[in-house]
Design a binder for these strands. Sequence first.
RNA 1: GGCCCCGUCGUCUAGUGGUAGGACCGGUCUCUUUCAAGGACCAGGCACGGGUUCGAUUCCCGUCGGGGCCA
Length: 460
Amino acid sequence: MRVRFAPSPTGALHIGGARTALYNWLVARRAGGALVLRIEDTDRDRSTSENVEQILDALRWLELDWDQGPLSQFERRDRHAERISELVGAGRAYRDPATAADVKRWKEQHGGAGYRGTERDEPGAAIRLRVPDDGETVVDDLIRGPVRFPNEHLDDFVIARGDGTPLYNLAVAVDDAEMGITEVIRGDDHLSNTPKQLLVLEALGATPPRYAHLPLLHGPDGRKLSKRHGAASVQELRDSGYIPAAVRNYLALLGWGTTDDETILSTDELVARFRIEQVGKSSAIFDERKLRWMNGRYLRDVGLNDYVGLVAGELRRSGHEDAAADSERLRAACEIAQEKAQTLREVWPLIRFVFEPPADDPDAWERVMGPEAAERLAAAAELLRDVEPFDAPTLERELGGLVERLGVKPKQLYQPIRVAITGTTVSPGIFESLAVLGRGEAMSRIDAALARLAAASPGR
RNA sequence: GGCCCCGUCGUCUAGUGGUAGGACCGGUCUCUUUCAAGGACCAGGCACGGGUUCGAUUCCCGUCGGGGCCA
């Protein structure tokens, strides 16, 4: 089995393309076959190396490797030209100078039937494939079953421009044949191109591959997925703080389901269970909320060492190199934040207080730091000065005792401490947070808060 | 305009000739030092109309709706 993944290099790898890549990969890996990566474009102008590099980046990030490629279709132009002249020589294709307007006029006169031209070897004449008048071309799709296209509706389509440039349907068919591709898995938007490729293959005398056309992906508004819908490309997914394993799991389940009701499936499990024939026929909507949930599940599951690595990578990407390099504190910070973040991007706001002074959040201060807060904070400060050791279990025990002695609700003591040391009302657990800061830093932040409170109400 | 594809909770899906299960989201409760996470429970769906059949979500046709390709 030889599977090919053939993206068009017109930009970043979008999510639909990523899913197609994943399905190709799963099929190849499951069968132990080869995965060929081919860059599909006959026009060099569109195929910039920058675009290709973006696609390769995305595939590497997703950890979808390939066995051969990337091969550029453009580089194979000589082969395409050769096969075109063979087809013309054999009478399977012919030169026809008809313009688009000519074809339109012809079709109007023939009641919507497929265009049939007449051979006229003039300079600049395009080359068209001869399509049979009768019968039908059947795409035996692995997902949809047989899809029938009556030949009478198919045009004698152009396979090469007047200047000899091969066109897409010709180039793809030639490449598939010459590379011995056996499975073609691609988006639904190619379904109506398939009979043309089949016709070329037949004229070439080649055995066609098996085809599977995946339903397209849409945005939450039901329209074609685009940048308007937030993260629409693999790059954006990475920048939003998603991790590859979660993305693979989510994408695999977007358009395909299993008989058992498992949702969290490792990549090995996906390989073991995936059947292209089971992929759904209807288009799916990309809903980032479920991806967020799933990403959170994966994030909570990874070991601390790996988690620290992931967070460090995210911090470097988002311009917090100093924090990323401070490995000891980063590790401690990650330990207390891991349970709370659904994406890597959400980690920094939670652990920022470990690396930087308390945030300035007037709302938080307003809500929590009343006059009673000052008394409780002062009591806490006194206690904290001598607690030994300054670790989470001890702090929990001692502060718990203080809560009882003061006769207040836990949060009436803990929230002021939280605002004092982090500046915000939302943070990781208070005992862990204190322990990570250490006695010295925690005390100086609390003292600073007390001073600020005293300044705000001089009467007391 | 021509050709083609698709239609199960809001979303992703499982499933069957005897009216539907899971996940996300939402709601309630619980846990709780904040926010999350966790646990429990609830709500919510077979697009519509005809057939075939004892019986259709399931099979067939049509309508409507969504989408794609070409022009």
